[in-house]
Design a protein around this nucleic acid. Structure first.
Lengths: 127, 127
DNA sequence: CTACAACTTCCAGTAACAGGAAGGTCAAGT
DNA sequence: ACTTGACCTTCCTGTTACTGGAAGTTGTAG
């Protein structure tokens, strides 16, 4: 597989596939005689894994940890769980922040007339 | 007021106060004879406004719009409301994404034994 | 007069890529 | 054989909203 094919299959952009190798998130691809990157199934699987982990919001370095656990036959599920649990807490924390913002902003928005006069509770609140 | 005093009062870092003037989010501060930035109450108020707007997650350019509306005696509350409404929709969208992620991740985490064996539904799911 | 804190400008780094330039390669059609 | 166009390469810059740090200047307390 060339890079565009693997990118499509992994659901990533070509740029991102190259980037992931640049930063060593995944190993450098093999090269054809002309210097083109070539990918096999295991390489594709790592890219898919990285993609999915990123979608959960794991940082690149967390993805690195997860990928190495993925390839480690002697991993412990405890190690994996710690990382996932930590991310879960982050998500919950972020949800709390957003919910608090949403309530406040929704209140302001609903109390704003939205007409052609300058008086505005949103501006008042911020000022 | 010197920059550190205004920064404290606005709840911003000194770096951020300088940055906001660099990018023209707020006007450049007056200078003392020695070149020190000096701030008056109106300058402080703009910084506080910017700080609050940022806390709501408005981007710098949205803060710029809001600040100019703040200073515009002839603004319409409709203009303000549009910006706030848009941000509110973004927040709600983000909440949906996070909730979906949270559910999925929580499910995986709870189904992972977290012991010393390699078998792990989290890894399985990602791979 | 000497510390030392606070100020200045300027440059680099962060996260995770995306955009684009300049140039090489491959496959299809003529 | 040649050309065209899609695809590949590397390298450099830009994005967002700052933060960190170096090198040099100023203000103030003792």
């Amino acid at each position: 597989m060339n890079i565009s094919e693997v990118a499509i299959k992994a659901g990533l952009s070509v740029k991102t596939v190259r980037y992931y190798a640049d930063i060593a998130l995944v190993p450098e691809a093999e090269r054809s005689a002309a210097g083109y990157r070539t990918y096999d199934e295991p390489a594709l699987k790592k890219l898919i894994f990285a993609k999915r982990a990123r979608e959960f919001g794991f940082s690149i370095s967390e993805c690195q940890e997860l990928l190495s656990l993925y390839q480690d036959e002697e991993r412990t599920s405890a190690n994996v769980k710690v990382i996932a649990q930590r991310r879960l807490e982050e998500i919950i924390q972020k949800q709390k922040e957003l919910e608090s913002l949403r309530k406040e902003l929704a209140h302001l928005v609903s109390s704003c007339n939205g007409d052609d006069r300058p008086n505005c509770p949103i501006i008042d609140y911020l000022g």
